[in-house]
Amino acid sequence: MKILVPVKRVVDYNVKIRVDKETNTVDLDNVKMSINPFDEIAVEEAIRMKEAGKCDEIVIVSLGPEQSKETIRNALAMGADRGIHVKTEHSPEPLLVAKILAKIIEKDSFDLIILGKQSIDDDCNQTGQMLSALLGCSIGTYASKVEIDNDALIVTREIDGGLQTIKLAKPAVLTTDLRLNEPRYASLPNIMKAKQKTIDEVEPVDLQIEMQPKVITKKIEEPPKRIGGGKVESIGDLVDKLKNVSGVI
């Protein structure tokens, strides 16, 4: 089995971003960037499948500027085999990402594609689902457990009220939820080894994809600030305020 894991370089989850009021954009200068946390879970899941003898090759793909290669290297250091870097200036909208991934899969067939359920920058939560539509294959979103059962996958999904288990035909697209696994840290020898692994470069034009977005961002603003910071001295005081000032109990 061959697995493709798309990864995205995003603002680190610990960074509180700042909106530049003059340019109406998010200020990304000198901000710490990391692999999208859900994508890291996807890489880990693929590696575990390989370690269990269920997978022969793990390919990492990332779209973005030159620095996206670092994100690919991180995944290679965790244990993936090789990388593909699709050179784009910015991060394209999910539909374009899905189209690019579909082209890559068309050239080099994969049995399983594992993605993060959402990236923590644009919070779209679309790419995996869109990719499954373009490939005409099955989709298992928000996976918290995956078992391989011959030509099928048994996937437990996190849904609003609890858990749902479904059986999917292969090839399949999966998107990861938080509890699927806990990603490993790359060891130093593996980080060194990853430097020798191949990363192929691809341009969107090579894939005959027109990079015209269908949704345009007109502006980005700061949300209205919540005024908090009020303190109470005791539980008695708290209950009194909730009852008599706010009227919520």
């Binding site: 909208e93 999910p94 539909l95 899905a98 919070d123 779209c124 939560n125 679309q126 790419t127 689902q129 869109m130 990719l131 499954s132 539509a133 373009l134 989709i139 979103t141 928000y142 999904r157 996190e158 849904i159 609003d160 977005p213 269908k214 949704v215």
Partner: peptide, 23 residues
Amino acid sequence: ATTNGKNILPRVAAKLDVSQISE
């Protein structure tokens, strides 16, 4: 934007060749 909505709608959007506007 429930788990059902988020699971199903992007698949429709891609089939229609349009973007989805989320949440």
